[in-house]
Each structure stands twice: as C-alpha cells, then as structure tokens.
Simulated assay, not measured.
Amino acid sequence: MSMDAPTFRVGVVVERRPSKSPWVDHAWRIVAIIPEAIGTEPGHVLGHDGEAVLLYAGARSVEFHRVETGNYRDNLTSGSPGLWVTLALTDEEPGIRLISVTADPAEGESLTEIGDLMVEIAPMPPEIAERLAAFVETHHVERVFTKRKRQ
C-alpha cells in the first residue's frame, strides 16, 4: 500500500427481484457496502425476502488518490456521501458481476457512459467516510484556477 493510493477492500450486497419489465428478467439494487467477506464467493445467497434474493456480489478494492481530493471533499460535503458501485449484467448465475467501487464522483459518473454497465450510488459507510476525510485532510492542496491571457 503506497502513500499515494491507500487501498482497502469492501464487499457489496445486492438484491435481485423478478422484473415486471418484458425486457429484463431481474431488477437489481445495491443493499449494503460491508467489510470484505473473505472466503465468500460472489453470488453466494445471503437470504430471501419474499421473491427477492440477497446476494454477495463480491469484493473490490477502494483506492484514494491525492489528485482526487477535491472530488472526495465534494462527495463528503454533499450531505449524503456515496460510493459508486459498477456492475455488469451477465448471462451466467447469479446474473451480475461486480466491476468496481469508487469514492470519486467524477470516476463514478464517467462509468455511467459505458452502455452495458449498471452504476449505482450506495451510501458510504461511516468508517469509510472517516478514512476518506482523514485522507483529504492530510493530502488536499487547494488549486487556484488562473485564466491564461493570450499573447
């Protein structure tokens, strides 16, 4: 783990429900961001709630980068800090694959432009928000915008 990019792993829990749409079989929703469940395979069924199935989607690393502290600060001060979770729909069980998890709103928004991916914002757990706030406090440098004049 370098000073520039502290990394830690998080697990993602999703809910799969039968869809009422004629175009898709299931509707998906992020239920929780949890500590990585080491030894738990992606797709592991965690429980049922009526027709809904709770599944462990897997774990991914979340990295903090010094050059993104402005974006992290904006995320933290937004009133509802989030993590952008990217999933790919698949034809194989359980029907999704976890791609990434990021605290950078700009990175998360850029992933929404890729057609076949599903990007959802999940509430940021308090312990991650605390780590992110400490990282921003340590590494943020305010960059002043200077408009260049033509010669």
Rank of each mutant, 00 (worst) to 15 (best):
E36A: 09
T40F: 15
P42N: 06
G43Q: 02
G43I: 00
H44C: 07
H44V: 04
H48C: 07
H48V: 07
D49E: 11
G50S: 03
G50V: 03
E51L: 12
E51S: 15
V53E: 07
L54S: 05
Y56S: 02
Y56F: 10
Y56E: 00
A57M: 05
G58V: 03
A59L: 09
R60S: 10
S61Y: 07
V62E: 01
V62R: 06
E63A: 13
F64Q: 04
H65N: 15
R66E: 14
R66K: 13
R66T: 09
R66G: 13
T69Y: 04
N71F: 05
Y72Q: 01
Y72H: 04
R73F: 05
N75W: 00
S78I: 03
S78A: 06
G79R: 09
S80G: 11
S80Y: 15
P81H: 06
L83Y: 12
L83K: 08
W84Q: 11
W84P: 13
T86Q: 09
T90I: 04
T90W: 03
T90C: 08
D91M: 11
D91A: 12
D91T: 12
E92G: 10
E93M: 12
I96Q: 03
R97Y: 04
L98Y: 00
I99H: 02
A103S: 07
D104Y: 01
G108D: 00
G108Q: 05
E109D: 12
S110V: 06
L111N: 15
L111W: 15
T112K: 13
E113K: 11
E113C: 14
I114L: 13
I114F: 13
G115V: 09
D116T: 01
L117T: 14
V119D: 01
V119W: 03
E120K: 11
A122Q: 02
P123I: 10
P123N: 15
P123W: 13
M124G: 04
P125L: 10
P126E: 02
E127F: 13
I128M: 12
I128W: 04
A129V: 13
A134K: 15
A134N: 06
A134S: 10
F135Y: 09
V136M: 00
E137V: 14
